[in-house]
Design a protein around this nucleic acid. Structure first.
Length: 607
RNA sequence: CGGGGCGUGGCGCAGUUUGGUAGCGCGGGUGCUUUGGGAGCACUAGGUCGCAGGUUCGAAUCCUGUCGCCCCGACCA
């Protein structure tokens, strides 16, 4: 046993830290951050998508949590702690129980000994909205903004990348309640600002992007992305930085078209021309002169299935998120799934083959006659890129034939003009056509939504307004993936030797390495430096292990403590080395000077 | 769920094609040496080869089934 120091002090010694680092990269980790967190002994997998946070990791998480708490508190949000087990009735009332538990639902659920159905909270709109309904009765009590930091459960279809997409994770979620939309918008702006401060303080480079609000629903929403190669989302950013969006949502100006002169319509023989490319080379056409037609099937509320016939300019790609939103708007119904129609599906529906490859925008509804479960008329949508063509080539609804110089009048007109194309790298921007979109990948660490009145209406909760009438709340919700953020920080801050934590969220600010534990002079000086740092208020760690210097250096590089003081062979001369992990800058200094410089660097960077 | 790959000491892997009773590196323990970039030597502990059936004199190896993990897609903080 060590004779001196409190138990805290003992735990700050590497020899007592339960630290196990791995020399080899674990086979099941693919991206750098996941590999490094496991190799550095930060996390251990317990089962699929479920991880244990080891002491170093928990220190990182606590630092992130402290920053989040400070900024949320500053922004006027109240911390709470809500239950993790939710009764099914609450979710049935909001209409989400079924979609969240059945099929590809993400809610873990169970029955208690009374046979009552419960779910483990993947998010807390139901619970929090119900509470608000019970407690907030008057506009005089509004607005209210509350948050919690807590473990969330989502039975992900495919957990992966360690903490990046796990089934149990730490999240900060906040909910705001307002008497009107303007007030919601002002809190939304305040949260946006708080989020920027939080990510800045965590030492992360993030971009706020326009986002699709997905399953949660609602109006405006913005995602905060940590830019990194391993990111699962593709984001588009204008050169001037004035516009940025998730590709799922991004809008842009489509590339210029090659005008096809107006001439009398004619029929093209196109047998064996099975792709747009074939069609172009064989007939000397440009893809921008062709309208391609896609047949899809949408599954909507009440298990109804609506066939879709979509027209896009042939050089453009369909964006299925935009499509889903447009279809939902047109039908005024929830869209669950949209899939391409295949020959097999036609068979199942008892339909004969369609002229795939030669579909035209005017494909007759009679091809749906006799369908077993599908609706019998197409919902037809034309993307702006196709609608803007005055003369074009398109399928003739007969295998082996296309129509040349068609116009919308000759192919049945345009019923729904929509934006369903995918914006891409290089496209011109709508806010300023001299600017182009750049693409990069991002990890979503935060998402803020203006929910509107979706949940307050569904759960029938509201307040009495100034006029004395009952009204549903206006709501916002604001999430930060705390454990994901920790891993994203590693993804953005590492090199070939290991992690380079940003100072503010590093498990320790400095590590004192005694090169040779058996050298009494080194050992005593190392202990002294360590003690001095602690007394100066530095989060310091002492590597007192009886290991060779090389092993300690490798481990220190791997676990990524921002500053390192090496007490080694110059210890007898009163000299130590000050090493900065990020830049690998190394200075041989007197003990006093090294400590002084370390303190000034740390206090300067902590802000 | 669809498509691909993999399960062999704590970790990384070989052995499987062509059946003969399990091996390498790292890690762990002990001792000596070494001591500023994942040390050397010696000794040592640790695996019913994912699991269950089957074929065979004999199965990590062949067959059937099953479970788990990883990658690509649908989901999301």
């Amino acid at each position: 046993m060590l004779s001196s120091g409190s138990s805290d002090e003992i735990a700050m010694r590497v020899s007592r830290l339960m630290l196990v680092t791995l020399r080899d990269t674990p086979a099941d980790a693919v991206i750098p951050s996941h590999q490094l967190l496991i190799r550095g002994g930060y996390i251990r997998r317990v089962t699929n998508g479920i991880y244990a946070y080891m002491p170093l990791m928990w220190r990182v998480l606590r630092k992130i949590i402290a920053i989040v708490q400070e900024e949320m508190d500053n922004a006027g949000s109240l911390q709470t702690l809500l239950p993790q087990l939710h009764p099914a009735e609450l979710w049935e009332k909001s209409g989400r129980w079924q979609s969240y538990t059945e099929g590809e639902g993400i809610m873990f659920h169970l029955k208690d000994r009374q046979g009552k159905a419960l779910g483990l909270g993947p998010t807390h709109e139901e619970v929090v909205t119900t509470l608000a309904g019970e407690l907030l009765n008057s506009y005089r009590q509004l607005p209210i903004n509350i948050y919690q930091i807590q473990t969330k459960f989502r039975d992900e279809i495919r957990p992966r990348f360690g903490l990046m997409r796990s089934r149990e994770f730490i999240m900060k979620d906040a909910y705001s309640f307002h008497a009107n939309e303007e007030d919601l918008q002002s809190t939304y702006k305040r949260m946006e600002a708080a989020y920027k401060t939080i990510f800045d303080r965590c030492g992360l480079i993030t971009v706020g992007v326009d986002a699709d609000s997905g399953a949660i629903g609602g109006a405006a929403s913005q995602e905060f992305m940590v830019t990194a190669e391993a990111g699962e989302d593709l984001i588009l950013i204008a050169n001037d930085g004035k516009y940025s969006a998730n590709q799922e949502k991004a809008i842009s100006i489509a590339p210029n078209k090659k005008v096809l002169n107006k001439e009398n319509p004619s029929i093209l023989e196109t047998s064996n021309q099975n792709s747009i490319e074939d069609l172009c080379t064989s007939n000397n056409l440009d893809p921008t002169q062709i309208v391609k037609v896609l047949a899809l099937i949408a599954t909507i509320e009440n298990n109804e299935t609506q066939p879709l016939l979509l027209s896009l300019r042939a050089d453009q790609d369909l964006n299925d998120i935009k499509l889903s939103n447009e279809i939902s708007k047109i039908l005024n119904a929830q869209v669950f799934e949209i899939k391409p129609i295949t020959v097999e599906q036609l068979k199942i529906q008892g339909l004969s083959d369609w002229p795939f490859g030669s579909l035209g925008p005017d494909l007759d509804n009679e091809v749906l006659n006799g369908a077993k479960s599908w609706k019998k008329t197409f919902l037809r949508c034309v993307d702006h890129t196709a609608a803007d063509l005055e003369s074009f080539v398109c399928g003739a609804n007969e295998i082996g034939y296309h129509r040349s110089h068609a116009t919308w009048e000759t192919v049945g007109g345009i019923q729904n003009r929509v934006d369903i194309r995918t914006a891409k790298h290089g496209d011109k921007c709508i806010h300023d056509p001299t600017q182009a979109l750049e693409e990069c990948r991002g990890i979503e660490v935060g998402h803020i939504f203006q929910l509107g009145r979706k949940y307050s209406k569904a759960l029938e909760v509201g307040f009495t307004n100034e006029a004395g009438h009952q009204e549903p709340f206006w709501m916002g919700c604001y999430g930060i993936g705390v454990s994901r953020l920790a891993q994203a920080a590693v993804e953005q801050n590492h090199d070939e030797l290991g992690i380079c934590w940003p100072l503010t969220i590093a498990p320790f600010e400095a590590i004192v390495v005694i090169a040779n534990q058996k050298d009494e002079i080194q050992r005593e000086l190392g202990e002294k430096v360590y003690k001095n740092l602690l007394e100066a208020g530095i989060d310091a760690l002492l590597d007192d292990r009886n290991e060779r210097a090389g092993v300690k250096f490798k481990d220190a590089d791997l676990i990524g403590i921002p500053f390192r003081i090496v007490v080694g062979r110059e210890a007898s001369l009163g000299k130590v080395e000050l090493f900065k992990r990020q830049t690998r800058q190394l200075k041989l200094l007197s003990v006093e000077e090294a400590q002084k410089q370390l303190l000034s660097e740390i206090f300067a960077n902590k802000g």
